[in-house]
Structure formats: C-alpha cells, structure tokens
Design a binder for these strands. Structure first.
Lengths: 70, 70
DNA sequence: ACATAATGTAAAATAATTTATACAATTTGT
DNA sequence: ACAAATTGTATAAATTATTTTACATTATGT
C-alpha cells in the first residue's frame, strides 16, 4: 500500500461559501476554531464524525471535502 | 445539531465480498483484526484515513461504507 | 470427535484528535 | 490612523482511536 495522503478543500469551500469565517464553520460543525485552523493547515486529519459534519455544513459529500490519494 | 450516528456496513460488505475474513480485511486495510472487530461492533469510529482504506478494499465510496445520520 | 479457522472479549500501552486558553499578526471598514 | 474582526501560533490537558497480547468461544470440514 503506497503511502496515502488526504487533502482537504476546507479553505476553498469556506471562500466559495460567501467567505464563511473559521469561527462560523467551527460553530456549525460543532468543533473549535482551533480545530479548523489545524485542519486547514494539514496538521492532522479530522475524526470521521467531524469530517461528515464539515461536509454537511457545505452541503457536499464527504469525498468532495476530503480527497484520498493512494 | 441533533445527535448524529454513523453506522457502517463492514460486516455486510465482507460477506458480500466472498465472505472476506476479518483478518484479510485488516491486512488489506493496514490495521489489526481487533480494530475490525471493534468497528463491526460499533465500539468506536475509525479514523478518516482508515475509513478511506476500508472503502478502497471493497472498491466503493467511503459513504457507501459509513452512513451518517443526522 | 477432532483439528483448524474464524470470531469474540479484555486490558494496558501508545498514538492521534480535539479542546481550552492565551496572545500575536493580519485584514477590513470607517 | 484606528477599532474591530479574522486568522495564525503555541502548548497542555482531555478524549478517542489503534495496537499488542493473550485467551475464550463458535463454526467448518473431515
């Protein structure tokens, strides 16, 4: 299994959604702003539950926010 | 935000895939059998990375393995 | 009935995610 | 230039996920 990477498009999606702030995304996804900051910077991956909640905030599929690359 | 649940169809998918054993799934998804056992029993949720790897083993989308319910 | 494979259970240790708090830096509007 | 909002940085604590190990139970084939 080749080393996999998971990229996210959170920053992009925020700006595509009327420049939603980190704070608003955090509130709506039920996490802290620090978590959003860390995710946008690729510090770590979100839990599956948070990944689903973030996708739901933007009204897209989880796989439209997080892209798995082999 | 109503309490959300995430169900998985791992057990079903294993049997639909020629009764793949827990061990084989674990090997192919690069985790231990104990993790597969725990996931099938709903003890906890997998990391996003593992969720993606499990979906890939079955050749389906992550959202076909893990179903988010508001 | 027996051997083997598959699944279930449990507990401790480690790793990863998330929160909480606080402050610094940058951007935005007036 | 100023105030306010937004974003960035940092670190410790708490929570959750995963591994490791070992053994028990159940199913399968002969």
């Amino acid at each position: 299994m080749a080393k996999a990477e998971i990229r996210n498009r959170i920053r992009k999606l925020r700006f595509e959604n009327n420049e939603m702030t980190q704070q608003e995304l955090a509130d709506r996804a039920a996490c802290t702003r620090q978590t959003i900051v860390a995710l946008e910077q690729g510090k770590y991956l979100p839990s599956l539950a948070l990944a689903f909640r973030i996708a739901k905030v933007f009204g897209v599929l989880l796989e439209d926010v997080f892209e798995y690359e082999e």
